[in-house]
Amino acid sequence: MRMDPVRALASIREELDRRGHNRVRIVVVTKTHGPELIETLLKAGHREFGENRFTEARAKFALVHAQAIQPIYHHLGPLQSGFARNLPGLFHVVHGVSSASALESLLKAARRHFEATGEGMQYLMQLNLTAESSKLGGMSEEQFLQCRESLPSEEALTWRGFMTMGPTDQDAKRTSEVFRRLRQIRDEHLPDGELSMGMSGDWQLAVEEGATIVRIGTAITGTRAGGPWMPESG
């Protein structure tokens, strides 16, 4: 379905304002869409965008023409050790940290990038609070507690909060319970931290439970293409 992304984004922002959540950050998920979508929204004043495929993002971001507003790029997919070393310099915030090995790889790469450029990164710990095996990435609450004291937070790579996904069936009661539990965990372990929770189908529930970041794709961009976007050859 074709949509006007600028109008769709403005409509969601207006609803956030009506609900009293005007400080919630919207990350527009642009996977499978080309760089022109990012440019369109940059021109409209938006600056936060999310991708979950490293190779797609690398090709796409290189074709985004400079704008008065500089984009902030969020990596939304599960953090994999093999790709973690490639994210500094491409992404600014990493949402899907859920293993010690991947975080160690990201930290080493972030330190190298910081030494060379002075640019730091932020990361969020991804928790799986639905106990669904179909959810890619995300550690249990128990696993998080085991590694809590060893999480790095420094200039090169700062721990900024938590991320989660609601249940697949989108049951409103269960979804709210999951988001509420993540807020409770945040309040206990990182009171000023970010809460990245809520997507196109459940962002309203997420903001009522305290989300500070919502990740919205199809509600703004329309139906996605079948596969990853890649630049045309030739």
Rank of each mutant, 00 (worst) to 15 (best):
M1V: 14
R2Y: 15
V6N: 10
A8G: 02
A8I: 00
S11P: 00
I12G: 00
R13E: 12
R13G: 04
G20H: 08
H21V: 04
R25P: 01
R25E: 11
V29G: 03
K31V: 02
K31I: 04
G34K: 05
P35G: 07
P35S: 09
L37D: 02
L41F: 10
L41V: 03
L42K: 03
K43E: 15
E51V: 10
R53F: 13
R53M: 13
F54D: 00
F54N: 02
A59T: 07
A59D: 14
K60Y: 04
A62F: 03
V64L: 03
V64F: 08
H65I: 09
A66Q: 14
I69W: 11
I72H: 02
H74T: 00
G77H: 07
L79R: 07
Q80V: 07
S81K: 14
S81W: 03
G82R: 11
R85Y: 05
N86G: 07
N86T: 07
P88R: 03
L90H: 04
F91C: 00
H92P: 06
V93R: 00
G96C: 09
A100M: 14
A100T: 15
L103N: 07
S105I: 05
S105A: 15
L106S: 02
L106K: 03
A110W: 02
A110I: 04
R112E: 13
F114S: 10
F114M: 08
E115Y: 10
E115F: 12
G118E: 10
E119A: 09
E119G: 01
E119R: 11
G120R: 10
Y123I: 00
L124R: 07
M125F: 10
N128T: 13
L129V: 03
A131R: 09
S133D: 07
K135N: 11
L136I: 13
G137M: 02
M139V: 07
E142I: 13
Q143C: 06
F144K: 08
F144R: 06
R148K: 12
S150A: 15
S150E: 15
L151D: 08
L151H: 00
L151Q: 05
P152K: 01
E155K: 14
E155I: 04
L157M: 04
T158I: 11
T158N: 13
W159P: 01
W159V: 11
G161M: 11
G161C: 09
M163R: 08
Q170L: 15
D171Q: 12
D171H: 11
A172F: 00
T175S: 13
R180F: 05
R180V: 00
Q184I: 10
I185C: 06
I185D: 05
R186Q: 08
D187S: 02
E188W: 02
H189E: 07
L190R: 12
D192A: 14
G198W: 01
G198C: 10
M199Y: 07
S200P: 02
S200A: 03
S200L: 05
L205E: 09
L205A: 12
E208T: 13
A211I: 04
T212N: 04
I213K: 00
A219I: 03
G222R: 01
T223D: 14
P228W: 04
M230S: 15
S233L: 14
